[in-house]
Amino acid sequence: MARMKFLCDAERCIECNGCVTACKNEHEVPWGVNRRRVVTINDGEPGERSMSVACMHCSDAPCAAVCPVDCFYTTEDGVVLHDKDICIGCGYCFYACPFGAPQFPTAGAYGSRGAMDKCTFCGGGPEPDGSAEEFKKYGRNRLSEGRLPLCAEMCSTKALLAGDGDKVSDIFRERVTYRGIGTLAWGWGVAYGKGGVRQSSGLGGKASSTKE
């Protein structure tokens, strides 16, 4: 089985927000919810970098560990999904998640948040694949159609990569080898365990691992 992963190449991302728009449109996510966001560091200064962030589908997912109603499950492809019918909207997953991925349709007084919504790796939810009910709650299920996440497919610079972790890191390693810089697959150490891309693809080099 493939182990699905996201990787955002900060040396390439141009902050066009195409992935954000693609995601919103594909899944008709609720108002106020952005499953994906682009964050720019040192905007307008030398060394500016942008990164597209969403749920990274962690190996030892913190969200799943803290959920009081235990509504998360990991698919065979390593995609972390949750059941909105069980979620009670407590917000704990948001506190635990390193990437701020879980989102809530409302954030009102008396802790009223509504059921949590997050990136599904275009993998839907517990309902039957491709059903209207699944679409309403979780958006399109592209994985069951044999397609990969739309955000990455739409990415104009191919900064955002999505798919089997080994393939993704192969592509990334090749890039890094050619250009000589930017060997850091940011967030991988946090999401997929110590070593990040170096461990999973045998990359040596000067990049700092994301996890000391």
Binding site: N34, R37, V39, I41, D43, P98, F99, G100
Partner: peptide, 18 residues
């Protein structure tokens, strides 16, 4: 760091919440 994002909301500018 100085961060900016088009997405409004709590902590959207934080990349990794250690």
């Amino acid at each position: 760091p100085e961060v900016r994002t088009q997405v409004r909301g709590v902590d959207t500018g934080v990349l990794i919440n250690a």
